[in-house]
C-alpha cells in the first residue's frame, strides 16, 4: 500500500492505454529538451469541435458520449506535434506527442432520460472546461515551435 514501489512508466502506460484510441503517443518518460531550438511561431488555425455518439438505451435511459477535438493548420516541416496538459491544479511537465493535426478526446458521457441529454451534456462539458486545457506546438527535427495559447477541453 505505502511501500516504495517501482513506478517506472506508470503514467506513461496508463495514459497511453487510455489514449491509444485517439492515436496518441506519449513522449518518453521525461519531458522535451529543456531548451530546444525555436522552430517558429505557434501552430495557427486552431479550431475545436464536438462530436456526439449515442449508444443503446438502458431501460429508460440513453447512453451518450461527447468527444472534443482540437485541430490546427499544417506546420511546415513538422513530423509531429506535442501537447502540454494544463489542469486546474497546475501544468504537467509530461508531454503528449502525436503525428496528427487533431487531438481528440472523450470529454463528457452520461446516461440521460429522453430530453435531458442536452442539459446534462452542457453541464458536464462546462465542468470539464474548469479542469483541463491543452497547448500544442510543432516538432520540427530537434526544434520546437512556440506553444499555442491554452484551449480548454470541452470548449467550442
Amino acid at each position: 500500500m505505502v511501500g516504495a514501489r517501482a513506478r517506472t512508466l506508470t503514467v506513461l502506460g496508463v495514459v497511453g492505454v487510455c489514449l491509444l484510441g485517439a492515436g496518441l503517443l506519449v513522449a518518453g518518460r521525461g519531458t522535451a529538451p529543456a531548451t530546444p531550438a525555436r522552430a517558429g511561431p505557434a501552430p495557427a488555425g486552431l479550431s475545436t469541435r464536438l462530436d456526439d455518439e449515442v449508444g443503446p438505451r438502458a431501460g429508460d435511459l440513453v447512453s451518450w458520449r461527447t468527444f472534443w477535438a482540437l485541430c490546427w493548420d499544417p506546420y511546415e516541416g513538422a513530423k509531429s506535434y506535442e501537447l502540454r496538459v494544463l489542469t486546474g491544479e497546475g501544468t504537467s511537465a509530461r508531454l503528449l506527442r502525436q503525428p496528427d493535426r487533431c487531438f481528440r478526446i472523450e470529454a463528457a458521457a452520461g446516461e440521460s432520460a429522453p430530453g435531458a441529454q442536452a442539459g446534462d451534456r452542457a453541464q458536464l462539458l462546462a465542468a470539464q472546461q474548469g479542469q483541463l486545457a491543452v497547448q500544442v506546438r510543432a516538432v520540427v527535427g530537434r526544434a520546437r515551435s512556440d506553444w499555442s495559447d491554452p484551449v480548454a477541453v470541452g470548449s467550442r
Binding site: 503514467v11 496508463v14 495514459v15 487510455c18 489514449l19 485517439a22 458520449r65 472534443w68 496538459v85 489542469t87 486546474g88 504537467s92 509530461r94 478526446i105 472523450e106 470529454a107 463528457a108 458521457a109 470539464q128 479542469q131 483541463l132 477541453v153 470541452g154
Partner: peptide, 9 residues
C-alpha cells in the same frame, strides 16, 4: 471520461 483521466494524471 478520457479527459477526466488526463486531468487526474
Amino acid at each position: 471520461t478520457e479527459a477526466d483521466r488526463l486531468f487526474m494524471h
